[in-house]
């Protein structure tokens, strides 16, 4: 078993700074009194609720982060309008699909932030994460036919790739890009679907 640091024995300065900043923003006053009390509160919080010792820094590439944030904002408006148009066109009903999308990263925090970014835009969200299998099940609205489903999967893969590109290392980003292309190709050639057909055959054999 790995050695666990006792709660309160180590307080990360970066987390402390973040918490004090949140406290200051909350009060909207930047004077010595709120700074002192903020530091006190942050220390108490960090001592009482210690976080896992492994931390990461998502601000390694601020420029890329901003690029992805802009991409997300544009996508937010775009998909809100698309979602709306789709509901109106179908007279208040909806046509949706639950698709499986391969996860492009192996690092927990990258997967979590990518899932949040995908779920933020209207019209799709990550319904279930199969962590050992490396698969997301994504609920997507506005799909009517097979090609629509493929396009939705492509969108989710692209979004994921952008997030990995922004927060992960370079080699991981290129690996993710490779995996995304591979997944798209397999989907196009129907390799995934024949895989499911195999499952079906097995089911029949078992019976």
């Amino acid at each position: 078993m790995a050695k666990r640091t006792l709660p309160g024995t180590r307080v990360a300065p970066s987390l402390l700074i973040w918490l004090v900043l949140v406290w200051l923003l909350l009060w909207g006053t930047f004077d010595v009194a709120s700074l002192v009390y903020g530091t006190l509160v942050a220390l108490v919080v960090l001592v009482l609720f210690p976080l896992p010792s492994h931390r990461w820094n998502i601000f390694r590439r601020p420029l890329r982060l901003v690029t992805v944030a802009l991409y997300v904002v544009v996508d937010l408006f775009g998909s809100a309008l698309r979602f709306l148009a789709d509901i109106v066109r179908n007279g208040g009903s909806v046509s949706a699909a639950i698709v499986h999308v391969p996860v492009l990263s192996d690092v927990d925090h990258v997967i979590a932030s990518a899932a949040n970014v995908v779920s933020l835009a209207p019209g799709k969200f990550v319904l279930q994460i199969d962590r050992p299998g490396g698969i997301w099940y994504v609920y997507v609205t506005g799909v009517h036919t097979g090609p629509d489903v493929d396009k939705a999967v492509d969108d989710v893969l692209d979004m994921q790739r952008a997030v990995v590109w922004a927060v992960a290392g370079d080699e991981e980003a290129s690996a993710a890009a490779g995996r995304a292309e591979e997944a798209k190709r397999r989907r196009r050639t129907g390799a995934d679907r024949s895989g499911e057909a195999d499952h079906g055959d097995q089911e029949r054999e078992d019976r």
């Binding site: 046509s95 699909a97 698709v99 629509d148």
Partner: peptide, 17 residues
């Protein structure tokens, strides 16, 4: 009736076998 494809239920059924 609103779902075109439901790959999660396919997977769950396959897993139960």
């Amino acid at each position: 009736s609103t779902l075109v494809v439901d790959e999660l239920s396919q997977r769950l059924r396959a897993g139960r076998q």
